[in-house]
Design a protein around this nucleic acid. Structure first.
Length: 281
DNA sequence: CGACTCTCCTGGGTGC
DNA sequence: TGCACCCAGGAGAGTC
């Protein structure tokens, strides 16, 4: 599942392999992939043609490619299973190929591949450099505009559980189920801890944990990156080697040896150490 | 507005 | 071997 670190690896790949190139052809193979482009697939195709990709940007789990001409960007979200692949033209089509872009230099093409189709691409206006459909989400914790004190104040005003708040992209963007569990483990917080009981030092510790697990993941994701492969779909190797709790039910906590437990929460899984992360009363 | 649930989707795994 | 079912989960839409 691509969260902030995986999406950042993709962004770097796009900046390296796609920026500066002119889009000359586009093909939408599955309408659901452009469902948020309300003017439709034909409009999407017509409007990306002839545009030069200026750069590759990211906020949280969203990626966008500002395009030449009007203040517009090609906005993408990978959902659960989305990949952006840079491949040689004519290479065999992937089973779940949804959108294909070709470039004027005749070189590699950009493919959006997505098995579960939770991801999407669209063309959207840029307002102050940010695509309008994501104007409502908060900066991610690696942006200069992310304000730790503001986050702490907003978190303490909430009347909810800390994990639910971490997953709320309007409070902090880029955190998904996996890194939420990992950061909570590192900060020794149970996912059900009421946000209004968190002290400011504890929130600072939690933010540091979020940054630490994501930075570690980014370093590992970056190392598996090679020339024509812009995909990182949560399969960078970080999953296998470095996760402390996610997906590790019944395996020993690396701090205390207690078996990790899995609980259902928000229709998904939460993994935690019952000893290091005491459930609130 | 805040808190919360529902819904979208596919394919691998599992139990009978 | 077939089939029903469960599970993974981001985030917008909808409810209260």
């Amino acid at each position: 599942m691509p969260e902030l670190p995986e999406v950042e690896v993709v962004r770097r790949g796009l900046a390296q392999w796609v920026a500066g190139r002119e889009i000359v052809s586009a093909e939408v193979l599955h309408p659901r992939a452009v469902r948020r482009h309300l003017a439709g697939a034909d409009d999407f195709v017509a409007r990306v043609k002839g545009r030069i990709v200026i750069s590759a940007e990211r906020r949280g789990k969203y990626l966008w490619l500002p395009l030449s001409g009007a203040e517009e960007a090609l906005l993408a979200h990978l959902g659960m299973s989305g990949q952006l692949l840079v491949v040689e033209p004519g290479s065999p089509p992937d089973k779940h190929l949804r959108v294909r872009l070709g470039f004027g230099d005749g070189g590699s093409e950009l493919r959006f591949v997505d098995q579960r189709t939770f991801g999407h691409v669209m063309l959207s206006p840029l307002l102050d450099g940010v695509p309008s459909p994501i104007a409502h989400i908060a900066p991610d914790p690696f942006e200069a505009s992310f304000d730790d004190d503001r986050f702490a104040a907003a978190l303490r005003r909430r009347r909810t559980e800390v994990k639910r708040a971490l997953l709320d992209q309007s409070l902090i963007s880029g955190v998904g189920n996996i890194y939420a569990d990992e950061a909570l483990w590192l900060a020794r917080l149970h996912w059900a801890r009421p946000t209004q009981t968190l002290t400011r030092p504890k929130i600072a510790e939690l933010l540091a944990a979020v940054r630490e697990v994501m930075t570690a993941a980014l370093h590992q994701g970056g190392t598996s990156f090679d020339s024509l492969y812009v995909n990182v779909n949560g399969e960078s190797g970080y999953f296998e080697r470095s996760l402390e709790v996610y997906g590790r039910r019944d395996r020993p906590c690396s701090r205390c040896g207690t078996p990790i437990m899995r609980e259902a929460f928000m229709n998904r899984s939460s993994f935690s150490c019952p000893r290091c992360q005491r459930r609130p009363r």
